[in-house]
């Protein structure tokens, strides 16, 4: 077991790190989405309509 671990420690470390990074990214993306932030290339804080984007626009003319 120890021999296997010493042979594959780099793979295990890399895989664990990758899984953690991906999980963190997904977690942050889900949290941002729940918070109403958009996964766009812009931070919604810089947008003039940042509050408006959380609710649908009022339907006007058909």
């Amino acid at each position: 077991m120890l021999a296997w671990l010493s042979e594959n420690w780099a793979n295990i470390l890399m895989i664990v790190l990758l899984v953690l990074i991906v999980a963190l990214i997904v977690f942050r993306m889900v949290r941002s989405r729940k918070a109403g932030k958009r996964p766009c290339g812009c931070d919604c804080a810089v947008c003039g309509a940042c509050c408006a984007c959380k609710k649908p626009a009022a339907k006007k003319e058909p």
Binding site: G41, C47, A49, C53
Partner: peptide, 14 residues
């Protein structure tokens, strides 16, 4: 506005 990102550009149409 859209030269930065299209999303605020679309929303600025309000």
């Amino acid at each position: 506005v859209g030269t930065g990102c299209g999303i605020p550009g679309v929303m600025a149409s309000r």
